[in-house]
Write a protein that binds this DNA or RNA. Structure first.
Lengths: 181, 181
DNA sequence: ACCTGAACACCGTTCAAGT
DNA sequence: ACCTGAACACCGTTCAAGT
Protein backbone atom coordinates (compact mmCIF):
# COMPACT_ATOMS: atom_id res chain seq x y z
CA UNK A 1 0.00 0.00 0.00
CA UNK A 2 0.88 3.66 0.08
CA UNK A 3 1.05 3.96 -3.65
CA UNK A 4 3.46 6.44 -5.18
CA UNK A 5 3.25 8.06 -8.58
CA UNK A 6 6.56 6.44 -9.54
CA UNK A 7 5.38 2.95 -8.61
CA UNK A 8 2.15 3.37 -10.53
CA UNK A 9 3.95 4.68 -13.61
CA UNK A 10 6.43 1.80 -13.48
CA UNK A 11 3.62 -0.74 -13.26
CA UNK A 12 1.77 0.98 -16.11
CA UNK A 13 4.86 0.80 -18.32
CA UNK A 14 5.14 -2.86 -17.43
CA UNK A 15 1.59 -3.55 -18.59
CA UNK A 16 2.17 -1.63 -21.82
CA UNK A 17 5.38 -3.53 -22.52
CA UNK A 18 3.71 -6.87 -21.94
CA UNK A 19 0.26 -6.38 -23.44
CA UNK A 20 0.33 -3.13 -25.42
CA UNK A 21 -1.18 0.29 -24.83
CA UNK A 22 -4.79 -0.70 -25.66
CA UNK A 23 -4.70 -3.12 -22.72
CA UNK A 24 -3.62 -0.45 -20.27
CA UNK A 25 -6.82 0.40 -18.40
CA UNK A 26 -7.17 2.11 -15.08
CA UNK A 27 -9.11 -0.85 -13.74
CA UNK A 28 -6.56 -3.40 -14.85
CA UNK A 29 -3.70 -1.27 -13.57
CA UNK A 30 -5.45 -0.93 -10.22
CA UNK A 31 -6.01 -4.68 -9.99
CA UNK A 32 -2.35 -5.52 -10.59
CA UNK A 33 -1.45 -2.99 -7.90
CA UNK A 34 -3.88 -4.61 -5.46
CA UNK A 35 -5.99 -1.51 -5.15
CA UNK A 36 -9.36 -0.12 -6.18
CA UNK A 37 -9.54 1.83 -9.49
CA UNK A 38 -10.60 4.96 -7.69
CA UNK A 39 -7.41 4.90 -5.64
CA UNK A 40 -5.45 5.88 -8.75
CA UNK A 41 -7.35 9.15 -8.91
CA UNK A 42 -5.83 10.33 -5.71
CA UNK A 43 -2.39 10.22 -7.39
CA UNK A 44 -3.38 11.17 -10.94
CA UNK A 45 -5.97 13.66 -12.06
CA UNK A 46 -6.91 11.51 -15.04
CA UNK A 47 -5.65 8.78 -17.35
CA UNK A 48 -4.14 11.47 -19.53
CA UNK A 49 -2.17 12.64 -16.52
CA UNK A 50 -0.82 9.12 -16.04
CA UNK A 51 0.08 8.77 -19.73
CA UNK A 52 1.93 12.07 -19.51
CA UNK A 53 3.95 10.84 -16.57
CA UNK A 54 4.80 7.69 -18.50
CA UNK A 55 6.02 9.77 -21.43
CA UNK A 56 8.20 11.83 -19.11
CA UNK A 57 9.86 8.67 -17.82
CA UNK A 58 10.54 7.51 -21.37
CA UNK A 59 12.18 10.83 -22.23
CA UNK A 60 14.11 11.07 -18.97
CA UNK A 61 17.31 9.63 -20.41
CA UNK A 62 17.39 11.91 -23.46
CA UNK A 63 20.60 13.94 -23.29
CA UNK A 64 20.37 17.65 -24.20
CA UNK A 65 21.25 18.35 -27.81
CA UNK A 66 24.60 19.92 -28.52
CA UNK A 67 26.84 20.24 -31.50
CA UNK A 68 26.44 20.95 -35.15
CA UNK A 69 24.53 19.35 -38.00
CA UNK A 70 26.63 16.18 -38.05
CA UNK A 71 25.37 15.34 -34.56
CA UNK A 72 21.78 15.39 -35.77
CA UNK A 73 21.79 11.81 -37.03
CA UNK A 74 23.13 10.43 -33.74
CA UNK A 75 20.57 12.48 -31.80
CA UNK A 76 17.81 11.01 -33.97
CA UNK A 77 19.10 7.49 -33.40
CA UNK A 78 19.30 8.11 -29.66
CA UNK A 79 15.73 9.37 -29.45
CA UNK A 80 14.51 6.50 -31.60
CA UNK A 81 16.20 4.01 -29.29
CA UNK A 82 14.58 5.62 -26.25
CA UNK A 83 11.13 5.48 -27.84
CA UNK A 84 11.65 1.85 -28.75
CA UNK A 85 12.67 0.86 -25.24
CA UNK A 86 8.96 0.72 -24.37
CA UNK A 87 6.06 -0.40 -26.49
CA UNK A 88 3.99 2.52 -27.78
CA UNK A 89 6.75 4.86 -26.66
CA UNK A 90 6.24 7.00 -29.75
CA UNK A 91 2.49 7.33 -29.20
CA UNK A 92 2.96 8.28 -25.55
CA UNK A 93 5.64 10.86 -26.27
CA UNK A 94 3.88 12.22 -29.33
CA UNK A 95 0.71 12.89 -27.38
CA UNK A 96 2.61 14.75 -24.70
CA UNK A 97 4.54 16.79 -27.26
CA UNK A 98 1.27 17.88 -28.83
CA UNK A 99 0.05 19.23 -25.50
CA UNK A 100 3.26 21.18 -24.97
CA UNK A 101 4.21 24.38 -26.75
CA UNK A 102 7.04 23.82 -29.23
CA UNK A 103 9.45 25.80 -27.07
CA UNK A 104 9.05 23.27 -24.23
CA UNK A 105 9.39 20.18 -26.43
CA UNK A 106 12.37 18.04 -27.40
CA UNK A 107 12.68 19.59 -30.87
CA UNK A 108 13.19 23.17 -29.75
CA UNK A 109 16.63 22.55 -28.24
CA UNK A 110 17.69 21.01 -31.55
CA UNK A 111 16.47 24.06 -33.43
CA UNK A 112 18.34 26.39 -31.09
CA UNK A 113 21.57 24.45 -31.41
CA UNK A 114 21.36 24.44 -35.19
CA UNK A 115 20.83 28.20 -35.31
CA UNK A 116 24.03 28.50 -33.26
CA UNK A 117 26.02 26.79 -36.01
CA UNK A 118 25.39 27.69 -39.62
CA UNK A 119 21.68 27.44 -40.31
CA UNK A 120 19.22 30.20 -41.08
CA UNK A 121 16.41 30.28 -38.47
CA UNK A 122 13.71 29.06 -40.84
CA UNK A 123 15.85 26.18 -42.05
CA UNK A 124 16.81 25.26 -38.49
CA UNK A 125 13.16 24.92 -37.58
CA UNK A 126 12.41 22.87 -40.68
CA UNK A 127 15.38 20.65 -39.86
CA UNK A 128 14.36 20.12 -36.23
CA UNK A 129 10.70 19.50 -37.02
CA UNK A 130 11.53 17.27 -39.96
CA UNK A 131 13.94 15.01 -38.12
CA UNK A 132 11.67 14.79 -35.09
CA UNK A 133 8.79 13.84 -37.38
CA UNK A 134 10.85 11.13 -39.05
CA UNK A 135 11.85 9.63 -35.72
CA UNK A 136 8.32 9.70 -34.35
CA UNK A 137 6.83 8.35 -37.55
CA UNK A 138 9.24 5.42 -37.86
CA UNK A 139 8.93 4.50 -34.19
CA UNK A 140 5.14 4.84 -34.29
CA UNK A 141 4.98 2.68 -37.39
CA UNK A 142 7.06 -0.04 -35.76
CA UNK A 143 4.89 0.07 -32.65
CA UNK A 144 1.76 -0.36 -34.72
CA UNK A 145 3.29 -3.27 -36.61
CA UNK A 146 4.33 -4.92 -33.36
CA UNK A 147 0.80 -4.52 -32.02
CA UNK A 148 -0.70 -5.99 -35.20
CA UNK A 149 1.76 -8.87 -34.93
CA UNK A 150 0.74 -9.59 -31.35
CA UNK A 151 -2.90 -9.61 -32.44
CA UNK A 152 -2.14 -11.98 -35.27
CA UNK A 153 -3.29 -9.62 -38.01
CA UNK A 154 0.15 -8.71 -39.26
CA UNK A 155 1.03 -8.58 -42.96
CA UNK A 156 4.00 -10.59 -44.25
CA UNK A 157 7.01 -8.65 -42.98
CA UNK A 158 10.09 -7.98 -45.03
CA UNK A 159 12.93 -9.00 -42.73
CA UNK A 160 14.50 -5.60 -42.26
CA UNK A 161 16.22 -3.58 -39.58
CA UNK A 162 13.91 -0.70 -38.63
CA UNK A 163 16.63 1.35 -36.94
CA UNK A 164 18.73 1.17 -40.11
CA UNK A 165 15.75 2.34 -42.17
CA UNK A 166 15.40 5.40 -40.00
CA UNK A 167 19.11 6.08 -40.18
CA UNK A 168 18.95 6.03 -43.97
CA UNK A 169 16.01 8.42 -44.05
CA UNK A 170 17.63 10.81 -41.58
CA UNK A 171 20.89 10.71 -43.55
CA UNK A 172 19.01 11.71 -46.69
CA UNK A 173 17.25 14.49 -44.84
CA UNK A 174 20.48 15.84 -43.33
CA UNK A 175 22.09 15.76 -46.76
CA UNK A 176 19.24 17.93 -47.98
CA UNK A 177 19.90 20.42 -45.22
CA UNK A 178 23.60 20.57 -46.04
CA UNK A 179 22.76 21.44 -49.62
CA UNK A 180 20.84 24.49 -48.43
CA UNK A 181 23.53 25.42 -45.93
CA UNK B 1 -33.78 1.57 -43.31
CA UNK B 2 -31.87 -0.85 -45.49
CA UNK B 3 -28.49 0.41 -44.47
CA UNK B 4 -25.64 0.22 -46.94
CA UNK B 5 -21.94 0.14 -46.22
CA UNK B 6 -21.47 3.38 -48.10
CA UNK B 7 -24.14 5.21 -46.11
CA UNK B 8 -22.72 4.00 -42.82
CA UNK B 9 -19.19 5.02 -43.81
CA UNK B 10 -20.39 8.46 -44.89
CA UNK B 11 -22.20 8.97 -41.61
CA UNK B 12 -19.14 7.79 -39.68
CA UNK B 13 -16.93 10.27 -41.50
CA UNK B 14 -19.46 12.96 -40.68
CA UNK B 15 -19.26 12.19 -36.97
CA UNK B 16 -15.46 12.16 -37.08
CA UNK B 17 -15.37 15.51 -38.88
CA UNK B 18 -17.74 17.10 -36.39
CA UNK B 19 -16.66 15.57 -33.09
CA UNK B 20 -13.35 13.80 -33.67
CA UNK B 21 -12.36 10.14 -33.87
CA UNK B 22 -12.60 9.45 -30.11
CA UNK B 23 -16.31 10.30 -30.29
CA UNK B 24 -16.97 7.82 -33.06
CA UNK B 25 -18.58 4.89 -31.26
CA UNK B 26 -20.64 2.12 -32.75
CA UNK B 27 -23.50 2.99 -30.42
CA UNK B 28 -23.48 6.65 -31.29
CA UNK B 29 -23.16 5.91 -34.98
CA UNK B 30 -26.10 3.54 -34.78
CA UNK B 31 -28.21 6.11 -32.97
CA UNK B 32 -27.63 8.79 -35.60
CA UNK B 33 -28.60 6.23 -38.23
CA UNK B 34 -31.80 5.39 -36.38
CA UNK B 35 -30.82 1.80 -35.84
CA UNK B 36 -29.66 -0.56 -33.10
CA UNK B 37 -25.90 -0.92 -32.53
CA UNK B 38 -26.03 -4.59 -33.42
CA UNK B 39 -27.40 -3.73 -36.85
CA UNK B 40 -23.99 -2.37 -37.84
CA UNK B 41 -22.50 -5.81 -37.37
CA UNK B 42 -24.46 -7.19 -40.22
CA UNK B 43 -22.63 -4.79 -42.57
CA UNK B 44 -19.23 -4.68 -40.85
CA UNK B 45 -17.39 -7.51 -39.16
CA UNK B 46 -16.00 -5.14 -36.53
CA UNK B 47 -15.21 -1.52 -35.78
CA UNK B 48 -11.79 -2.07 -37.35
CA UNK B 49 -13.56 -3.14 -40.51
CA UNK B 50 -15.53 0.10 -40.51
CA UNK B 51 -12.41 2.19 -39.90
CA UNK B 52 -10.73 0.44 -42.80
CA UNK B 53 -13.61 1.27 -45.09
CA UNK B 54 -13.38 4.91 -43.98
CA UNK B 55 -9.67 4.97 -44.80
CA UNK B 56 -10.38 3.54 -48.24
CA UNK B 57 -12.83 6.38 -48.94
CA UNK B 58 -10.26 8.95 -47.86
CA UNK B 59 -7.67 7.47 -50.21
CA UNK B 60 -10.10 7.01 -53.09
CA UNK B 61 -9.14 10.27 -54.82
CA UNK B 62 -5.39 9.65 -54.68
CA UNK B 63 -4.10 9.58 -58.27
CA UNK B 64 -1.54 6.89 -59.13
CA UNK B 65 2.02 8.14 -58.90
CA UNK B 66 3.84 8.84 -62.12
CA UNK B 67 6.86 10.80 -63.14
CA UNK B 68 10.31 11.43 -61.80
CA UNK B 69 11.72 12.82 -58.60
CA UNK B 70 10.47 16.34 -59.18
CA UNK B 71 6.89 15.07 -58.99
CA UNK B 72 7.49 13.72 -55.51
CA UNK B 73 6.81 17.01 -53.74
CA UNK B 74 3.48 17.50 -55.50
CA UNK B 75 2.49 13.90 -54.74
CA UNK B 76 3.26 14.50 -51.07
CA UNK B 77 1.22 17.70 -51.05
CA UNK B 78 -1.67 15.91 -52.75
CA UNK B 79 -1.69 13.06 -50.22
CA UNK B 80 -1.43 15.52 -47.35
CA UNK B 81 -4.41 17.45 -48.67
CA UNK B 82 -6.46 14.25 -48.93
CA UNK B 83 -5.61 13.25 -45.37
CA UNK B 84 -6.52 16.70 -44.12
CA UNK B 85 -9.92 16.66 -45.84
CA UNK B 86 -11.22 14.63 -42.91
CA UNK B 87 -10.32 14.85 -39.27
CA UNK B 88 -8.05 12.02 -38.13
CA UNK B 89 -7.50 11.15 -41.77
CA UNK B 90 -3.85 10.37 -41.07
CA UNK B 91 -4.65 8.05 -38.18
CA UNK B 92 -7.26 6.17 -40.19
CA UNK B 93 -5.02 5.74 -43.22
CA UNK B 94 -1.94 4.95 -41.16
CA UNK B 95 -3.72 2.13 -39.35
CA UNK B 96 -4.85 0.59 -42.62
CA UNK B 97 -1.38 0.92 -44.16
CA UNK B 98 0.07 -0.96 -41.20
CA UNK B 99 -2.28 -3.87 -41.82
CA UNK B 100 -1.36 -4.03 -45.48
CA UNK B 101 1.88 -5.41 -46.90
CA UNK B 102 4.10 -2.62 -48.25
CA UNK B 103 3.55 -3.81 -51.80
CA UNK B 104 -0.20 -3.08 -51.51
CA UNK B 105 0.23 0.34 -49.90
CA UNK B 106 0.39 3.85 -51.31
CA UNK B 107 4.17 4.08 -50.95
CA UNK B 108 5.05 1.11 -53.13
CA UNK B 109 3.88 2.73 -56.37
CA UNK B 110 6.10 5.70 -55.57
CA UNK B 111 9.07 3.42 -55.00
CA UNK B 112 8.47 1.63 -58.30
CA UNK B 113 8.18 4.88 -60.25
CA UNK B 114 11.41 6.19 -58.76
CA UNK B 115 13.30 3.04 -59.67
CA UNK B 116 12.11 3.61 -63.24
CA UNK B 117 13.88 6.96 -63.35
CA UNK B 118 17.37 7.30 -61.90
CA UNK B 119 17.35 5.91 -58.38
CA UNK B 120 19.02 2.82 -57.03
CA UNK B 121 16.46 0.39 -55.56
CA UNK B 122 17.55 0.90 -51.95
CA UNK B 123 17.44 4.68 -52.31
CA UNK B 124 14.05 4.53 -54.01
CA UNK B 125 12.63 2.64 -51.04
CA UNK B 126 14.19 5.05 -48.57
CA UNK B 127 12.77 7.96 -50.55
CA UNK B 128 9.26 6.51 -50.74
CA UNK B 129 9.16 5.48 -47.09
CA UNK B 130 10.69 8.75 -45.97
CA UNK B 131 8.31 11.02 -47.83
CA UNK B 132 5.29 8.93 -46.83
CA UNK B 133 6.42 9.11 -43.20
CA UNK B 134 6.79 12.88 -43.38
CA UNK B 135 3.31 13.31 -44.84
CA UNK B 136 1.70 10.98 -42.29
CA UNK B 137 3.60 12.52 -39.39
CA UNK B 138 2.74 16.13 -40.27
CA UNK B 139 -0.91 15.32 -40.92
CA UNK B 140 -1.16 13.23 -37.76
CA UNK B 141 0.43 16.00 -35.73
CA UNK B 142 -2.03 18.55 -37.07
CA UNK B 143 -4.94 16.24 -36.31
CA UNK B 144 -3.78 15.80 -32.74
CA UNK B 145 -3.39 19.55 -32.31
CA UNK B 146 -6.87 20.13 -33.71
CA UNK B 147 -8.28 17.59 -31.28
CA UNK B 148 -6.47 19.19 -28.35
CA UNK B 149 -7.79 22.57 -29.47
CA UNK B 150 -11.36 21.28 -29.56
CA UNK B 151 -10.91 19.90 -26.05
CA UNK B 152 -9.55 23.21 -24.83
CA UNK B 153 -6.17 21.81 -23.78
CA UNK B 154 -4.19 23.25 -26.65
CA UNK B 155 -0.84 24.99 -26.18
CA UNK B 156 -0.37 28.52 -27.54
CA UNK B 157 -0.10 28.00 -31.27
CA UNK B 158 2.38 29.76 -33.49
CA UNK B 159 0.28 31.07 -36.35
CA UNK B 160 1.77 29.02 -39.16
CA UNK B 161 0.69 27.25 -42.30
CA UNK B 162 0.99 23.49 -41.72
CA UNK B 163 0.91 22.61 -45.40
CA UNK B 164 3.81 24.99 -46.05
CA UNK B 165 5.77 23.37 -43.22
CA UNK B 166 5.38 19.98 -44.82
CA UNK B 167 6.35 21.35 -48.23
CA UNK B 168 9.56 22.73 -46.74
CA UNK B 169 10.42 19.43 -45.09
CA UNK B 170 9.68 17.43 -48.22
CA UNK B 171 11.75 19.86 -50.30
CA UNK B 172 14.70 19.33 -47.98
CA UNK B 173 14.26 15.58 -48.15
CA UNK B 174 14.05 15.56 -51.94
CA UNK B 175 17.17 17.70 -52.11
CA UNK B 176 18.90 15.05 -50.06
CA UNK B 177 17.85 12.38 -52.52
CA UNK B 178 19.12 14.42 -55.47
CA UNK B 179 22.51 14.66 -53.83
CA UNK B 180 22.77 10.88 -53.74
CA UNK B 181 21.45 10.55 -57.26
C1' DA C 1 -3.48 11.73 3.76
C1' DC C 2 -4.84 7.88 1.40
C1' DC C 3 -8.01 4.42 0.10
C1' DT C 4 -12.73 1.68 -0.25
C1' DG C 5 -17.47 0.95 -2.03
C1' DA C 6 -20.74 1.98 -4.86
C1' DA C 7 -22.52 4.20 -8.36
C1' DC C 8 -22.97 6.80 -13.19
C1' DA C 9 -22.73 6.91 -17.89
C1' DC C 10 -20.70 4.79 -21.09
C1' DC C 11 -18.02 1.06 -24.45
C1' DG C 12 -17.56 -3.24 -28.48
C1' DT C 13 -19.57 -7.46 -29.54
C1' DT C 14 -22.61 -11.64 -29.72
C1' DC C 15 -26.68 -14.01 -30.68
C1' DA C 16 -31.25 -15.73 -30.40
C1' DA C 17 -35.33 -14.06 -32.12
C1' DG C 18 -38.24 -11.44 -35.08
C1' DT C 19 -39.87 -9.84 -40.01
C1' DA D 1 -31.65 -10.72 -45.97
C1' DC D 2 -31.68 -7.46 -42.59
C1' DC D 3 -32.64 -5.80 -38.10
C1' DT D 4 -34.29 -5.85 -32.89
C1' DG D 5 -33.74 -6.94 -27.95
C1' DA D 6 -31.23 -8.31 -24.55
C1' DA D 7 -27.35 -9.60 -22.61
C1' DC D 8 -21.98 -10.06 -21.56
C1' DA D 9 -17.84 -8.26 -20.20
C1' DC D 10 -15.90 -4.39 -20.01
C1' DC D 11 -14.51 1.14 -19.77
C1' DG D 12 -13.07 6.24 -17.16
C1' DT D 13 -14.49 8.96 -13.49
C1' DT D 14 -16.78 10.80 -9.24
C1' DC D 15 -17.67 11.02 -4.51
C1' DA D 16 -19.33 10.00 -0.02
C1' DA D 17 -17.55 7.34 3.44
C1' DG D 18 -14.08 4.99 5.98
C1' DT D 19 -9.28 4.81 8.45
Amino acid sequence: MNLTREAVVAQALGIVDQYGLPDLTMRRLATTLGVQPSALYWHFASKQDLLGAMAAVILADLPPYSGDLTRLTVWAARLHALLRRHRSGAELVWAVETLRPWEAGVGYAVEQALVQTCLAPALARTAARGVLSLVLAYAFDEDQRQLARSLGVSPPEPAIDPARDLDDAVAVFVAGIERAC
